[in-house]
Structure formats: structure tokens, C-alpha cells
């Protein structure tokens, strides 16, 4: 077996005494697109920032291992971590327009990671940036490179961000809801672009989203996150067909379906995500789970339920029999 591009196990992140991330396991194989899904506040962004070594302020890494193509990252110094960023791991964000420096030309920003790491002088970084802009489908790249971000649309800015993230050919791209701020057509174009770039460059992608439609159309594999833990991890078709965790099952029921009767109201998961300092003991989904029982006072481990299909639930065998809310 080849070495995974990214292997996270038992990752923990603390804010003061509270574990906001408590045992996250994610594996991304080379060339794979893995989606990380979950409601707001489940810890997706913190997981990403902790991989990047960019946790700041009161947040700190409190345990677990992160391995990038065989390189363990958890004991890497800040300086060495900085050299990996933009070179071996890149990250793109929501808010494409605000993510670009308003005073720097687009071309300079795309070439930034080459110059910042001393991989190219300004001139050759510029020509590679223009080429990269062409690769991400920006028309008239020579002209666009000279423009400021304010002269570009949101969708274009997202392409620029992708170009700057991929110019150094990183092994892993982390995309934190890169399409959430864009309208549907542009969103589809950006997803298409990411799919194409993955084919061309073989970059692995960890794609964070709470849109299951996006997951279905893009991902090879899915990690479902709840309350700072991974509750289920499986290949995308397997997950959609045979969810093994009640939370996943209920998330899937929230997707509007073309074949469902029009008048029927959309299902939503009852209750809200508790605050990170207010998790119930044992299974963190207990307060909202229709299958919850006494066993659930103990934390269920993330364990194989079928080949390549992991779930953290004492009652996964009953998930298939849950009343269909949709």
C-alpha cells in the first residue's frame, strides 16, 4: 500500500480546559478528495488550522499525530512548519475577495509562495503565476495578473486563490468551504476546476463543507464530524447508501430530493449543537439522538463496521431501521 498523503489520528485541540477537538482521525490517500462535513461549530476549521500549524491565540494542539506523506508534523518546529506551508500543504478559504491583499497585484499574490520560500525570483515567479492563472481558467491571464483583486469577480478571486495555493504543487490542498460564498453556477465551475486540477496534478484535497450536495458530486471519501469528533468515515457511495451513524443518517435526510413530494417540509435535525464547553458525557450526539440508550453514556470508539467503513456508535446496526424522516 502507498503511504497516505495525510494521516491524522487522535487529534485534540484545547481552548483553555475544553477539548474543542477530541479525537479526530482522518486519512487522505494520494490523489483522493476527502470531504469533511458537519454542522457549524463541529470543529472542521479548527481541524484544518491544526494541520496547517496555524492555531493561534488561546487554541493549542493537545495531542494526537499528524503525518504528511510519512513526515510527522506534531514535533515540527514553527520555522520548519512554515516552510511546509504553501510548499507541501496549502489552504484556501471562504471569502475569496477578502482573502486577497487589496494592494497587491493578482500576479504577485499568485507567485507569493514561490518568492516567500525563495523558490523563484520575482520575474520567474511572475511568469509562472501567469501560467498558473491560465491553468485555473482565467481568461487573458497576462492582463489579469497586473490587476488588483478589486477588479475581479468573486469567482475569479477564488480561482486566483486556488492558483496561488497550487503554484508550488503541494501534496495536499485543504479547502475550507471555498464555494460557500459563491452563487450556484460559479460554485459548480469552481468544483469542476478542483476536480480537473486533481486529475492533472494528483494533489490530494481535504474539502470542508456542510453541503452534502457538494460532497456527493466531488468527494471520493467522506468524514462526518460532530462535536469535535469524527463520527463516521466511508467512501462516498457507501456513506450515502449505508450510513452507520444516526447523525449521518439524519444529515442525509436533510437533503432535498428531487423525487420527494413538493409540499413535504424539509427535515432538519432537532435541537442544536451544544456549546463546546457543554458537551454531554459519553457520546456527544446523545442529546439529539433518537437511538440513544444507556450504553451511550460511554464514548463509542470509531471502529470498522464494514470494509473501509468506520463509525462511532454503539447502535450502528439499528441505523438502517430508523424511521425515515424524509
Amino acid at each position: 500500500m502507498t503511504e497516505p498523503t495525510l494521516q491524522i489520528s487522535g487529534l485534540q485541540v484545547q481552548v483553555g480546559p475544553h477539548k474543542v477537538i477530541d479525537g479526530v482521525d482522518i486519512t487522505v490517500q494520494p490523489g483522493q478528495i476527502v470531504a469533511l462535513v458537519g454542522e457549524s461549530g463541529s470543529g472542521k476549521s479548527l481541524t484544518a488550522l491544526s494541520i496547517m500549524g496555524l492555531l493561534g491565540g488561546k487554541l493549542r494542539n493537545a495531542g494526537g499525530t499528524i503525518t504528511l506523506s510519512g513526515t510527522p508534523l506534531e514535533h515540527t518546529s514553527d520555522a520548519a512548519m512554515r516552510r511546509l506551508r504553501g510548499q507541501r500543504i496549502s489552504m484556501i478559504f471562504q471569502e475569496p475577495v477578502a482573502s486577497l491583499n487589496p494592494l497587491l497585484s493578482v500576479g504577485a499574490q499568485v507567485g507569493e509562495s514561490l518568492v516567500a520560500h525563495g523558490k523563484a525570483d520575482a520575474g520567474s515567479a511572475w511568469s509562472r503565476a501567469v501560467q498558473m492563472l491560465r491553468d485555473v481558467g482565467i481568461p487573458e491571464p497576462e492582463k489579469r495578473a497586473r490587476q488588483l483583486p478589486s477588479q475581479l469577480s468573486g469567482g475569479m478571486c477564488q480561482r486566483v486563490m486556488i492558483a496561488s495555493a497550487l503554484i508550488a504543487r503541494p501534496e495536499l490542498l485543504i479547502a475550507d468551504e471555498p464555494t460557500t460564498a459563491l452563487d450556484v453556477t460559479i460554485q459548480a465551475q469552481i468544483l469542476e476546476l478542483m476536480r480537473r486540477l486533481r486529475e492533472q496534478t494528483g494533489t490530494s484535497i481535504l474539502f470542508i463543507t456542510h453541503d452534502l450536495g457538494v460532497v456527493a458530486s466531488l468527494a471520493d471519501r467522506v468524514c462526518v464530524m460532530y462535536g469535535g469528533r469524527i463520527v463516521e468515515q466511508a467512501d462516498v457511495d457507501d456513506l450515502f447508501d449505508n450510513p452507520a451513524h444516526p447523525y449521518t443518517r439524519m444529515l442525509l435526510a436533510t437533503i432535498p430530493r428531487v423525487d420527494s413530494p413538493r409540499k413535504q417540509p424539509l427535515f432538519s435535525i432537532p435541537g442544536t449543537v451544544p456549546d463546546h464547553d457543554d458537551w454531554p458525557q459519553g457520546c456527544r450526539f446523545r442529546t439529539r439522538c433518537p437511538l440513544a440508550g444507556d450504553a451511550c453514556l460511554q464514548t463509542p470508539p470509531l471502529e470498522p463496521k464494514a470494509a473501509g467503513h468506520l463509525a462511532a456508535c454503539w447502535h450502528s446496526d439499528k441505523v438502517a431501521g430508523m424511521i425515515d424522516h424524509g
Partner: peptide, 17 residues
């Protein structure tokens, strides 16, 4: 706190940069 500074750091810019 601006997103572009976050992106610059994610691209590996050193603090003086």
C-alpha cells in the same frame, strides 16, 4: 485579522514578510 493575512500565513510567509 483580515482573511488575506491568514492566507499569506497559510502560504508560508514569515512574520517579517
Amino acid at each position: 485579522g483580515m482573511p488575506y493575512v491568514r492566507l499569506a500565513r497559510a502560504m508560508g510567509a514569515s512574520w517579517p514578510r
